[in-house]
C-alpha cells in the first residue's frame, strides 16, 4: 500500500489488478471486485452467491504482502494485485495437474466432457498432461438415486454441492469426511446413499458440480461433443454460468 493512494480520496475504494484500476464496494473480496469489473481470475470452487471457500487455490494472486486466495481475501483500498502473470499461471497449472492426478479423470468417457470446468481450466492454462504420477485412488460410485449419479472418481472436493445444498436448497445433503488425501464426499443419509437423501433433480446441488461427479441420469450426450459449453466458450468468459441455464438451474426456475 503506497502512501500516494492513501492521499488520493478517489483511490480509497479501488484496487489494482495487473495494473488495471478496479473499483470495489466495502465487504467485497478481490474476486467479487474482479468479476464485477470483467476481470477473470481463474477459479473452480468459487460461485457467486455461495459462501466463498478458498480451497481449490486456483485463484491465488499475489497482493504484495504475500499470496492470497482472491475469493476469500477482502479487497483493501490500494491493493496492488498480480493475477494474470506467467508465474501465477504456472502455479495454477500445477494445481490443476494435482486435481487431475489425485482423482480418476478419464475425459473421453465422461459425460461432462466439454462442459467440465476442470477440463476447460486445463486447456486455459495450457496443461498438456498430468505431469505427476497418478494416485489411482479407489473411490466409491453411488448410483442408488433414481435420477442422480454420484461418481466420486471425478470429485475435486470443491464443496460447491455442499454449499449449494446447504445455502440455496436448504437441505444439507453433502459433506466432506476423512482427512488429507483420504478426504471424500459423503451423503447425509441414514445409509450414506444418495437414494436415502433429500436430493432432488431440481436442487441446485444436483447441477452445480463443475466436473462429472454429480450427473443427472438419462440425459447423457444430448449435446454433441463439439457443441458443448467449452467448445463454444472460454472458461475465462465472465458470467458463463448464466449463459448455460440448463447446467445451473436455480431452484425457483
Amino acid at each position: 500500500m503506497s502512501t500516494d493512494t492513501k492521499q488520493n480520496p478517489i483511490a480509497q475504494n479501488t484496487i489494482t489488478i495487473d495494473g488495471q484500476e478496479i473499483p470495489f464496494l466495502a465487504g467485497q473480496t478481490i474476486m467479487d471486485a474482479a468479476l464485477a469489473a470483467g476481470v477473470y481470475i481463474p477459479h473452480l470452487c468459487h460461485r457467486q452467491g455461495l459462501t466463498p471457500h478458498g480451497s481449490c487455490k486456483l485463484c491465488v494472486v499475489d497482493t504484495g504482502s504475500g499470496s492470497a486466495s482472491a475469493c476469500t481475501m477482502p479487497a483493501v483500498a490500494g491493493q496492488r494485485i498480480s493475477n494474470n502473470t506467467p508465474a501465477l499461471n504456472e502455479v495454477r497449472k500445477t494445481i490443476t495437474q494435482m486435481l487431475f492426478i489425485e482423482g480418476n479423470h478419464i475425459c473421453p468417457s465422461c459425460e461432462k466432457c466439454g462442459d467440465c470446468t476442470l477440463q476447460a481450466m486445463a486447456y486455459h492454462l495450457g496443461m498438456l498432461d498430468g505431469h505427476f504420477p497418478q494416485f489411482f485412488q479407489r473411490r466409491e460410485v453411488d448410483a442408488s438415486h433414481p435420477t442422480i449419479m454420484l461418481d466420486r472418481d471425478r470429485c475435486i472436493l470443491c464443496e460447491l454441492c455442499v454449499r449449494a445444498s446447504r445455502e440455496v436448497d436448504g437441505k444439507n445433503v453433502f459433506a466432506i469426511a476423512g482427512r488429507g488425501i483420504n478426504a471424500h464426499l459423503v451423503v447425509n443419509s441414514v445409509s450414506g446413499k444418495l437414494v436415502d437423501s433429500d436430493l432432488e433433480t431440481s436442487d441446485m446441488a444436483a447441477h452445480i458440480c463443475p466436473v462429472g461427479a454429480i450427473l443427472i441420469k438419462e440425459h447423457g450426450y444430448e449435446v454433441p461433443i463439439g457443441q458443448r459449453t467449452f467448445d463454444l466458450h472460454q472458461v475465462s468468459e465472465i458470467g458463463l454460468e448464466k449463459t448455460i441455464p440448463t447446467k445451473v438451474r436455480q431452484p425457483d426456475e
Partner: peptide, 21 residues
C-alpha cells in the same frame, strides 16, 4: 505432514503426498 494434512486445500492435500512419494 502428508498424514496430518487436513485435506482442505489442493496444494497441501495433494502436494504433501507428492513430496512424500
Amino acid at each position: 505432514f502428508a498424514h496430518e494434512s487436513c485435506g482442505f486445500c489442493t496444494p497441501c492435500r495433494v502436494g504433501t503426498v507428492l513430496l512424500k512419494n
